[in-house]
Structure formats: structure tokens, C-alpha cells
Simulated assay, not measured.
Amino acid sequence: MKRLVEALFGLVALTGLPYLIYLGVYYLRRPSGTPADTWPDEPSVSVVLPTYNESSIVESKLEELTELDYPMEKVEIVVVDSSDDGTADLVETFFAGRPEPELTLIREDERRGLATALNEAYAAADNEVVVKTDCDSRLAPDAVRKAVANLADPNVSGVTGRNAEVIGDSEVERGYRDLQTMIQILESHIDSTLIFHGPFSAFERDAIVPIDEDSIADDTELALKIRRNGGRVIFDPDIHYKEAAHSAFGKRREQKDRRAMGLLRLLWRQRDALGSHGAYGRVVLPFNWWFMIVSPWLVATGVALATLGSLAVLGPFGLATPAGVLAFTALGSRDMLGPLQPLYSLFDTQISLFRASVSLLRARAEGDEETHDGTWSPDRELREVLQ
């Protein structure tokens, strides 16, 4: 029993140590603001918008894009569409008679996956800066201006922004995004950040390279490849967007697990980047490997050891430990933990990463690693809050 307790405490210490080191570095450096704040001339911008059955929200998204605080004569909207609900027709109607911005509409005959669609759209984009956004997100009016300000730095080739407001009032998602913001601010000041966000990412057109056709972490994959080619890719907390998100545990699982699976698979495929590319490979990537791959297994093992230990000491009363974990999860998924809510947000992320890693390992054992084709289904419930 003593050895079990020692193992549990050792496991907790091992799990938490990298996070404590990170917090120490953060408070020593106290990074703040945009990593690159040069205000350049206004370069031409192509805004890439992938759509699939977005007829209920595409017009409001296009209204937003045409009202951005940026000269529309310098903007091209590239819509790549594989819908069967008339989304492409709505796009054409919206731009009929508008002299600007320019529209490039790519109609796909069949769904081939998001990554394939994005590769086609990026190849069609003509302008100096390429912005990628999602239909189910909302951008601050100055998002593009702040992005091109970052890209004016000759060392910066990509920039992403911050989810400043969670549509749908999800405390779980908000708590995780606040934690992620801290991580990405420090990463950007050290070198480059890892995760790029689908609602808003911007790249130098000449830095863009093709992404894997089966990618389910397309924005992050493009950023990682750009960093490997020598350009910095950064997070700017002053670039704001909004994204809808669920709080309910069950509803969050598909969305979070899919994202987690994409990131884990990407880290594994790009594992040779560890230790290379300056502080990105020596600091940023190792921390993300710990957070996404190692830590979730340690958390799961810790819960298992705590359960076994309490059962060994307390007998049937030891079931209070797993019951407590379940209660913590139930309350957290309902945004009912008060000051402990951010802790649950972190725990929720570790659950998704653990589930995703188990799914990937199972698929590999079955010889079926590449089962995901990169397509996605619109979340009708979340879209209702955007209408």
C-alpha cells in the first residue's frame, strides 16, 4: 500500500512539473501584446472560405467579410464549395452586381475532404496575404489589419488569433481557451506557436505549401510546415474571433476528440522536427508532446491508481474516488464548478487527448490508421446560434 501511495504522489509530481516550469517561465518573462507590431502598407488579401451545406449562415458570413476594416478593392474572396444545399448559388447571388471584393468561386463536383479543398483554394488565391476563416465563426472588424501588421515582419510568415468570445456561452471552452492563450503567447515570444485556429489564420502567400490530403489538423499542419521551412508562425492575442462551442460533456466529445486526433496524428507524423528549427523544436514542440501525448496517459494512470488505492484502504467506500471524479466531470460539463472551472477545462482537454490517442493506437493495431477522409458535417445546433 505504501508503494502505491508513493507511486501516486510521484506520478502527480511528474505530471505537474512541466506545467509548473511553464508557469515559472511565463511569470519571469511576462510576455504581452503582439509579437510583431509593425504597421505596413496595405497588401492585397485573399480570404479563403471553405463551405459545405452552409446555406443557413453563409450570407451572414459574407456580410461580415465585406464589412471588414480593410479596403475591399484589395480583397479577393475565395470560396471553395462542395455543398448540395445551394450554398454556392447563394454565394453567387450575394456577389452579383458587387464590383468589390472580387469573388473566386470553386465548385467541387464531389466532396474530397477539407484539406484537398484548401489546397485547391490556396493555389487559386492570387494576393500577397492569404487569410483562412470558417463559416461558423465571426471575426473582429480589424482582424485582417492586425494580421498583415504581424506579417510585415520579414521573419513572420503566419499568424493566428484568439477566441475572444465563445458563442453559446460555454464556460468549459472559455476556460480552455484562456489557458491556451497563455501557452501560445509564450510560445510566440520564444519562437513560434504550434496550434493554428481554423476561424482565423493568415499566411504569406509565398510561404504556403500543400497539406496532406487526409489531414484533420490542416491549419496547424500548414503552420508547422511553414516553420520547418524557416518562417516564424505566431499567435497574436489582439486578433479576435468568435467561435460557437458546446459545454455539455457528450456534445463536446465529437468536436474535441476529432481535433485532438488530428493534432496527435500530426505530431507523430512530424516527429522528426523535435530538436530542430531553433527553440521551436527544442522547447515548443517538446512541451506540446508532453501536454498532448504524455500527460493524458499520466492523468489516466493517476486516476486508476487513486481508485485502486482507495479501494485497497477503504474497501467498498473507496468507490468514493471514482464517484468524485464523475461528479467533478458532471458539474464541470455544466459550468457549475465556480473557481475550479478552469481546472475542469484542462481535465476535459486531457480526456479528449487520451481518448484520441487510444483511438489512434487501436486503429494502428488493426492496420487501419488512415480511416478519416477529412470531411466534416456541420453542427446544426451550433449554427442556430449564428443565425
Rank of each mutant, 00 (worst) to 15 (best):
E6P: 00
F9I: 13
L11E: 05
P18H: 04
Y19S: 07
Y19D: 11
L20A: 13
L23I: 08
Y26G: 07
P35Y: 13
P40K: 14
P40T: 13
S44G: 11
S44N: 02
Y52N: 02
E54Q: 15
V58S: 04
V58L: 07
S60D: 14
T66R: 07
E67V: 10
E67H: 15
L68D: 03
L68A: 08
L68W: 03
Y70E: 06
Y70G: 09
P71L: 11
S82F: 00
T87M: 06
T87A: 04
L90T: 04
F95A: 01
F95N: 00
R98G: 09
E100L: 05
P101W: 10
L103T: 05
R112Y: 01
A117I: 01
Y122E: 12
A124P: 01
C135Y: 01
D136S: 13
A140W: 06
L151T: 02
T160G: 02
N163V: 04
A164H: 14
E171M: 08
D178H: 10
D191W: 12
S192K: 12
T193R: 14
F200P: 00
D206G: 08
A207R: 06
V209K: 05
I211K: 00
D214H: 12
A223Y: 00
A223L: 01
R227C: 02
R228S: 07
N229R: 13
N229M: 02
G231D: 10
F235S: 03
D236I: 05
D238Q: 15
K242R: 11
K242F: 03
E243S: 07
A244H: 02
A245S: 12
A245N: 10
A248L: 08
F249W: 03
G250A: 12
R252P: 01
K256S: 12
A260V: 09
L263Q: 13
L264M: 14
L267S: 01
H277L: 05
H277C: 08
G278W: 08
V294A: 13
P296S: 12
A300G: 15
A300I: 06
T301F: 11
T301D: 09
L308G: 08
T321I: 09
T329A: 09
T329S: 07
A330E: 06
G332K: 03
M336R: 14
G338D: 07
Y344D: 01
T349A: 12
Q350F: 14
L360Q: 15
G367E: 00
D379E: 14
R380I: 12
L382V: 03
